[in-house]
Design a protein around this nucleic acid. Structure first.
Lengths: 102, 102
DNA sequence: TCAACATATGTTTATTTGTTCATATTATAA
DNA sequence: TTATAATATGAACAAATAAACATATGTTGA
């Protein structure tokens, strides 16, 4: 174990990836990757219930992957960090390459 | 949804991250990041049962994150791909920054 | 062949988790 | 204040899953 600090860091790392480990959350993240989105729009785009979207957004926000901004009745969500895009891209690269060489 | 291809790709992406979403598997990956390791050594290093390690290694291998090489009775495992290190590093960056700014 | 070692694989169990449904909060307009 | 729209939250349920235990497979040497 070289570059790892504590066990706590490993747990945090696993927590982070666990968030990305759900297709629904991935879709939600992609939906807001270029434009901030309100909850209802996300639900409409992904054909999900408002409740389900809201639950997942809470998880994403708690994990600091997403930030929110209230405008009237609506709440707009966007990625909190550019790491979100970076992590998604890195994973996507792996998936894409996996399709060719095997 | 811009750079995404099919729904299948999203599912594959989620599958990939799900693998990283477990502290045990992260530890296993780190253990073999610089040197290939046999099952028993990993179990010893991480204080886990041989069975548990073997089960997790199977998951890692099925996901193409890890490759194996037999040498006599022992089987040595190593990351299959440099994406493994890249993905771990990217996640680690996020975790490390998350500690400071909040 | 047999024994010993290394690894793999079923099976069961306890825990985690995503969704649904119902209900609560928050904000706007009349 | 009352009605309505947007979002959040709580509880219950079903599906996924990591660990433990027992057992099987494979390899080497006598």
């Amino acid at each position: 174990m070289d570059g790892m600090d504590t066990e706590k860091t490993v747990d945090e790392l696993a927590e982070l990836f666990k968030i990305f480990g759900d297709p629904t959350r991935i879709r939600i993240l992609y939906a807001m990757l270029d434009t901030e989105r309100c909850v209802n729009d996300i639900a409409g785009l992904l054909d999900m219930s408002q409740s389900s979207v809201s639950h997942q957004l809470r998880i994403l926000k708690t994990s600091k992957l997403v930030k929110s901004r209230r405008e009237g009745k609506m709440v707009f969500y966007a990625p909190d960090d550019d790491h979100v895009r970076a992590i998604l891209n890195m994973g996507m690269e792996h998936v894409r390459e996996g399709e060719s060489n095997d």
